[in-house]
Design a protein around this nucleic acid. Sequence first.
DNA 1: ATCAGGTGCAACCGGTCGGTTGCACCATGT
DNA 2: ACATGGTGCAACCGACCGGTTGCACCTGAT
Lengths: 109, 109
Amino acid sequence: MSMRDDRVDAVFAALADPTRRRLLDKLAVQPSATATELAAAEPVSRQAIVKHLRSLDEAGLVMPSRTGREVRYAITPEPLEDAVGWMATVGAQWDRRLARLRGRLEAGH
Amino acid sequence: MSMRDDRVDAVFAALADPTRRRLLDKLAVQPSATATELAAAEPVSRQAIVKHLRSLDEAGLVMPSRTGREVRYAITPEPLEDAVGWMATVGAQWDRRLARLRGRLEAGH
DNA sequence: ATCAGGTGCAACCGGTCGGTTGCACCATGT
DNA sequence: ACATGGTGCAACCGACCGGTTGCACCTGAT
């Protein structure tokens, strides 16, 4: 059950870049797109987008599939759950500590 | 209500480093700790930890408070919600698109 | 066969990152 | 007064990142 650490690593790292998040935004609406298509709507070069898509792929957030001479990328949001899981854990622990502290205080110092 | 983009940026960037996540883990259990204390349990130097704590602070995930000659850091998990919010949005959009697609298919091509 | 569009590969650049070391500063206890 | 322990500042390093450009490659249409 141990949350794969390097996986979470890659997911957060991928999500840290605004361009990458925008790409995911697009792919969350549009079923799939090519790097060249996506680059047209972004202020950076196609190669830059390709690199971004590569790191999204390595994080498992996107899946490329070749059809003919073009490569279409589709979103795979499952890995987000690992990341959310970690956040939930930290949040829960924090809440628990707070509750314990509150209890101890109410118990009369 | 627009989700502050650079804030989300900083949060994800901060969460992208395993050492930083470990620090948050510790601070989610322990009420507060100094950089030197935290460094003792980590394989890196105190200065490295100080830098990590700085970026956690800039992301709003941690709050330093000086007492005497030492500086104690406490967790503030609220900013996590922005990040989780973004993920939820993407997930929801993705689900909605999927549902729409499914509906269109069931409508008999 | 040839031409065009899409993709892949590689080198390069400036900047940031994680980490280190050395040292100065400042508050505290004796 | 002084030594001690915690903190802060600054420089340095190798590695990686976001981005660019140029060109080679392959696929498909004419």
